[in-house]
């Protein structure tokens, strides 16, 4: 068996091991050194940042956490950066989810990102956790006409009519911005189809920005920028946006160093880089094997024909 044949028939567990090293080693190195790569924000991340940056103080923002712990590795840094940016803008934050398993993620994000940054914020006045509601896109249709019908209480069981910041919230058009961090169904696509699209061309359009997994990003690109004013695609989008938000936070708190937690997306770009380089390397090796074998089989056929 030639080297090429052995390489072609390589046990896939070797590939798994290579990928594990490509991801784990940069994580360890970054953990020890704190190094990170500089970010150059792309157009969709910049549009996301600018849409949020344009919000006035006290703007009402609906934040839907439509993901689960499985995809939190990719999406939680986006949710964290969104929340910090909203805190910086002194926006009123209305959190909800259409994924049953996301409820604890809301609490954690509020505590970790909003309340550590602005401990004086008051529940029910500055922020609220409206919890989970079953029904997928059915909920979206209902809240488009009557928000409190789908969310009669918050996550703690308090009636929404008794929550001060819910006053004036009639439907999704009552919010200045809708933010969605989504992993699949129901997610950003359904928010565009059932909440944003019906309002297009009718008075004040609903503003939507979304953070999505890398795999679903190509599917959502057609909606940018008409139906979605901004989009963070995968951890790369999260890193670009986080970088811009951090610049704002640094400008607001001169001389104060940012804690490592503020750079979780940017720090993930190193494992991403080495993972991608490994993929490129594997594809090149795979194609080299393919061309060498094709050449061998052609020369073999030619020799047979000559004989």
């Amino acid at each position: 068996m030639s080297f090429i044949d052995r390489l072609d028939a390589i046990d896939r567990r070797w590939i798994f091991l290579m990928m594990a090293c490509a991801v784990a080693i940069p994580i360890i190195v970054i953990g020890l050194t704190g190094a990170r790569f500089p970010e150059v924000p792309g157009p969709t991340s910049t549009a996301t940042f600018e849409t949020i940056e344009a919000l006035p103080e006290g703007a009402k923002v609906l934040f839907s956490f439509d993901f689960d712990p499985a995809s939190a590795g990719e999406l939680q840094p986006m949710a964290n950066a969104f929340m910090r940016h909203l805190g910086q803008k002194k926006a009123k934050v209305y959190c909800q989810t259409l994924w049953a398993s996301a409820t604890p993620l809301i609490e954690e994000t509020l505590k970790k990102c909003l309340l550590t940054q602005s401990p004086d914020l008051v529940y029910g006045v500055d922020y609220v956790n409206l919890g989970y509601q079953a029904g997928n896109e059915g909920v979206m249709k209902v809240i488009s006409t009557d928000y409190k019908q789908s969310f009669p209480t918050d996550a703690k069981g308090t009636r929404t009519t008794a929550i001060p910041m819910m006053e004036g919230i009639e439907n999704t058009s009552s919010f200045d911005l809708i933010m969605v961090v989504s992993a699949g169904y129901p997610g950003s696509k359904e928010w565009v189809q059932y909440v944003v699209s019906p309002t297009l061309g009718k008075g004040k359009p609903i503003q939507l920005v979304a953070g999505v997994t890398g795999v679903s990003a190509p599917q959502l690109v057609p909606y940018f920028p008409t139906q979605m004013q901004g989009m963070l695609a995968a951890i790369k989008g999260a890193a670009e946006y986080e970088y811009m938000v951090n610049e704002v936070i640094k400008a607001a708190n001169p001389g104060k160093p940012l804690p490592p937690a503020y750079m979780e997306a940017q720090r993930r770009m190193a494992p991403q880089l080495f993972g991608h380089l490994l993929m490129v390397g594997l594809i090149i090796v795979g194609n080299t094997i393919f061309f060498v074998k094709r050449r061998q089989s052609r020369s073999g056929s030619a020799m047979k024909a000559a004989a």
Binding site: R12, I15, D68, A72, M279, L282, G286
Partner: peptide, 27 residues
Amino acid sequence: LSSITATMFSLLAFYVASAAFRAFRAK
């Protein structure tokens, strides 16, 4: 739950590398 589901999701990185090596050929 969080750890188990995140582990399952992470498996994608390994499978995508193996699929790329095997199937991504300039035919």
